[in-house]
Simulated scan of single mutants.
Amino acid sequence: MEAFFVSTGIVALAEMGDKTQLLALILAARFRQPWPIVLGIFVATLVNHALAGAAGAWVTTVIGPDVLRWVLGASFIAMAVWMLIPDKIDDSDTPAKPRFGVFGTTVVAFFLAEMGDKTQIATVMLAAQYQAYYAVIAGTTVGMMLANAPVVWLGERMTRLVPLRVVHVVSALIFAGLGLWALLG
C-alpha cells in the first residue's frame, strides 16, 4: 500500500501547474463536455503510466541494486530541481478541432503531452524503486485524476486555491527526500 499512497501523493502534487493540467483546463474551456474529457484523461494516463511502469520494472532487471540505488537517488533529486521549473503549454499541445471527438482528442492530446513529462518519469522511477508495478500504476493514475478531474469540472478557480509555487516547493522537497532516502537507504 505504501507504493500506492506515495505514488498517488507524488503525482498529484507534481501535476499541479503541469502542462497536462493546463491542457485539461484548455480542453474543458474549449469543449465544455467534462465527462468525455475526464474519461479521456483517465485512459491516456492509464496507458501512458502502464508503459512507464513497465520501463521502470524492466530497469530493475538490467541494473544491479547498488547502481539502481544511485540512479534512483540522483533521479529523484533531479526531479526535485525540475519541480521548481514551472511548465508552460504551447499551441502545438492544444487540438485545433475535435477530429476524433472530445474523448478521442483528449486521449491523443494527453497521451502525447505526458510523454517525457515529470509524472511519466516519476512513474518510471517509482516503479523501479518499489518494484510494485500495479500499485504504482494505480497510484500514479489516481494522482493524475485527483489533480486533473477537478480542473475539468471546476476550471480555473481550482488552480487558484493554493499558490502553485507552494505546491512546486512541497513537491520538490518530497522528491529531494526520496532521493536522499534512496541514496542513504
Rank of each mutant, 00 (worst) to 15 (best):
P65K: 06
G53L: 07
V6F: 07
V102D: 01
R69V: 06
P163S: 11
R165A: 06
G143Q: 10
R99D: 14
V167P: 01
A182E: 12
V6W: 14
A14Y: 06
V151S: 03
G155L: 04
M158V: 14
A138F: 14
G101P: 09
T123H: 06
P86C: 06
S75N: 03
A29V: 03
A78E: 08
A74N: 02
L161K: 00
T106K: 05
V47A: 15
R30N: 03
Q33Y: 04
V81C: 06
S92K: 13
T141L: 07
M1G: 12
V102L: 07
A12N: 04
I121G: 03
L25W: 05
M115E: 00
S92V: 05
F175A: 08
G40P: 02
T123E: 08
Q21T: 03
T94G: 00
Q21K: 10
M115C: 01
S7I: 08
K88T: 14
E114F: 03
A57L: 12
G40H: 00
I63F: 15
D117E: 14
V102E: 03
G17L: 08
Q21P: 07
D93Q: 13
L25R: 01
V107P: 04
K19Y: 06
D90F: 02
M144S: 15
T105C: 05
I37E: 00
A113N: 14
R30E: 11
F175I: 07
L84A: 12
A172E: 09
A132I: 02
W58D: 00
A28Y: 05
L183E: 12
G17K: 01
I63Q: 10
L39M: 12
Y130T: 06
W82M: 14
A128C: 02
A54Q: 05
I85Y: 15
A182P: 03
L23D: 07
V169Y: 13
I41N: 01
R30C: 00
K88L: 12
N148P: 00
G143V: 12
L173I: 13
V142E: 01
T60R: 12
L84F: 11
L68C: 06
M16T: 10
W35H: 13
A29R: 08
W181Q: 14
G179N: 10
A12S: 13
Q129W: 08
M16R: 12
T61C: 02
M145C: 11
A147V: 05
A122V: 11
Y134M: 09
G185S: 13
E156T: 09
V47Q: 10
D18L: 07
A147I: 03
M115P: 00
I85W: 15
L173T: 01
E15P: 04
G40Q: 01
